[in-house]
Simulated scan of single mutants.
Amino acid sequence: MDVEGFERDGYVAVRGAFDADTAAACREMIWGSLAARGIDRDDPGTWRPSVEIPCPSGEPFATAATSPVLTAAYDELIGPGRWTRRDWVGGAVPVRFPSEEYPGTGSGYHIEGSYEGPDGSFWVNVRSRARGLLALFLFSDIGADDAPTRLVKGSHLYIPPILQPYGEAGIPTEQVESQWRPSVLCRATAHATGKAGDVYLCHPFIVHTATWPHRGSTPRMMAQPAVHVHDGFVLDGSDLSPVARAITAGLALSQ
């Protein structure tokens, strides 16, 4: 795995993290959840630009979540014994259907929240309390025309100096988005494209956005759960995990 690239760019793609049959079984269950919302796979007239559902649970999702390749990657990026093992993928599945229309959700540069703050919204702090990684599970093939998630390369390094003054309490993610320099969004980008079964593992502070339109021919299915950590990361130089090293590297940029 390209750990150096993860620390530099803020993400790494784990190709073939789970097999095509598992991905196909996951898609079947996602279609089942969509049918309960009146969406018929054989009737594009029932499709909408974007429909977000909770990630289903069940055997194929357990197989994807417990992939030995993924668990080894979590150990390498976060540290053995530090992340929460679970037998489900979790998170939301924003299903994007072929459409020229604005999807209405997720289309705006942001970072993910980590925990519920006192106001009930999602908050984040400099130690990335509760969130070890953002994972993007590709359940369908996703190409450049299929509205892939856009990742701003290296943007995770510019978030720690924003968060540091707020200490352990942290701030709402919306306040982070109002403080980064506009130049952050001028950095090079990458798109989370690949085959069903690929998983992108992203630094918790990476700036990203949904894209549109979706000019592909089939619905895009992807889950975007957090990989939970028992505690946040230690930033005094003693934490040698790549996630922590990237945070301390970001803090050093502001000195």
Rank of each mutant, 00 (worst) to 15 (best):
P54L: 09
P98E: 09
I39A: 01
V234D: 11
R245H: 10
V234R: 12
T84L: 12
Q255F: 06
E52G: 11
S217M: 07
L235Q: 05
G81Y: 12
S178C: 10
F18N: 10
V95D: 02
A25S: 07
Q179R: 15
F6D: 03
H203K: 08
D40R: 13
D231M: 01
L70K: 11
G16L: 07
R85E: 15
E59R: 15
V12L: 15
A249Y: 05
V14Y: 13
S241D: 03
V3A: 09
R8T: 14
T193F: 00
R187V: 06
S114L: 00
R27M: 04
P242M: 09
T149M: 07
W180A: 09
L77R: 05
V93R: 00
L185Y: 08
R181F: 08
R8W: 01
G81L: 11
A246C: 08
H203W: 03
I78H: 07
K153Y: 05
P182Q: 11
G45V: 02
W47Q: 03
H230Y: 11
D40A: 12
G45P: 06
P68D: 12
K195P: 01
P219G: 02
Q175R: 15
P172H: 11
I78M: 15
F137A: 01
T218K: 07
R129F: 05
R150C: 14
E76H: 11
L77H: 08
C202S: 08
A169N: 12
G132V: 04
R150M: 14
D40S: 13
G117Y: 06
A23E: 02
P160S: 04
R48K: 15
P160K: 01
I78N: 09
A249D: 14
P44D: 10
D75C: 09
D42F: 12
L133T: 03
S178N: 12
S178V: 13
F97L: 06
P49H: 09
P54S: 10
R41C: 02
H230L: 13
E174R: 13
P225D: 00
Q224W: 06
V95L: 00
A20G: 04
A223L: 01
D145V: 00
A147R: 00
R129E: 15
A135S: 14
I162M: 08
G16N: 07
Y74V: 08
A130F: 00
P160G: 07
L201W: 08
G90Q: 07
W180M: 10
V229R: 00
I159W: 03
R82S: 04
D198S: 08
R37V: 06
G81T: 11
G117F: 04
E112L: 06
P165N: 09
S121K: 09
A190T: 09
T66W: 00
T63N: 03
E112S: 14
L133C: 08
V3E: 07
M222D: 00
Y11D: 03
D236H: 07
G58S: 12
L134N: 12
A169H: 10
